Simulated scan of single mutants.
Amino acid sequence: MPALLQTSDIRRNYGNLPVLKGINLTIEPGEIVSIVGASGAGKTTLLQILGTLDRPDAGELHIAGQNVFTLTDRQLAQFRNERIGFVFQFNNLLPEFTALENVCLPGFISGKEEDEVRERAKSLLTTLGLQSRLNHLPSQMSGGEQQRTAVARALINKPAIVFADEPSGNLDSRNAEELHQLFFQLRDELGQTFIIVTHNETLASLADRTVIIRDGLISS
């Protein structure tokens, strides 16, 4: 089976400062990979490039067989919406929308049938234990419930890969543990692939593989 994600000599500078100095990384389907490293090592920059939110100065990135940086910005935005999911530390839910509406948004943006999107959103929220929270606003949910809603939103378009940036960084230890277990449940049930940037040593140790970024390079 071909790799799901593969980079070749990814480099990124900010002004005269080299942040990524030649990243070569391969991710297989169904893997959970954690990316760790000290602050300033280049973790977030790498995640932004892998998630196609930023373009490198040099190098290639292939996701699901697509050489993504050959796409125009418009094509890349469409690819990102359809093939990539994101979970952020502060969940980024829209406060004026219910849990169900927040989860549906990426599906609506991609042009899918409204009924189909709503049914999948309900199914995902139910799978994540939020069937009683469909019509609740984020302010009416706990931090753990908000983050699980964000996970459902990341999955709505059946992405090839989900990127999580410090997903448990804003949660207490109990909710963090539940979120960590959720990633593995989704991998087992849906075959979902996750790349997780984290400072949480427990989550990093649970991953199939840990990638250490040190001074702009992969050191392990």
Rank of each mutant, 00 (worst) to 15 (best):
S8L: 07
D9S: 09
R12Q: 03
R12T: 00
R12N: 00
G15L: 06
N16Q: 14
L17K: 01
P18L: 02
L20M: 06
K21E: 06
G22L: 05
N24W: 12
T26M: 15
I27D: 11
I27N: 02
I27Y: 10
G30K: 04
E31M: 05
I32G: 00
V36C: 15
V36D: 09
G40I: 11
G42I: 01
T44P: 06
T44L: 09
T45I: 09
Q48N: 15
I49S: 07
I49H: 03
T52W: 08
D54A: 05
P56G: 00
A58T: 02
G59I: 00
G59A: 00
L61T: 06
H62S: 15
I63H: 09
G65Q: 05
N67F: 07
N67T: 14
F69D: 03
T70P: 00
T70L: 13
L71P: 04
T72Q: 09
R74P: 05
R80C: 07
N81S: 12
E82P: 00
Q89D: 15
F90W: 13
T98G: 03
N102F: 02
C104E: 15
L105V: 10
P106D: 04
K112H: 06
E116K: 09
V117H: 04
R118D: 11
E119M: 10
A121I: 06
K122P: 04
T127P: 01
L128W: 02
L130G: 05
Q131W: 06
S132H: 13
S132P: 00
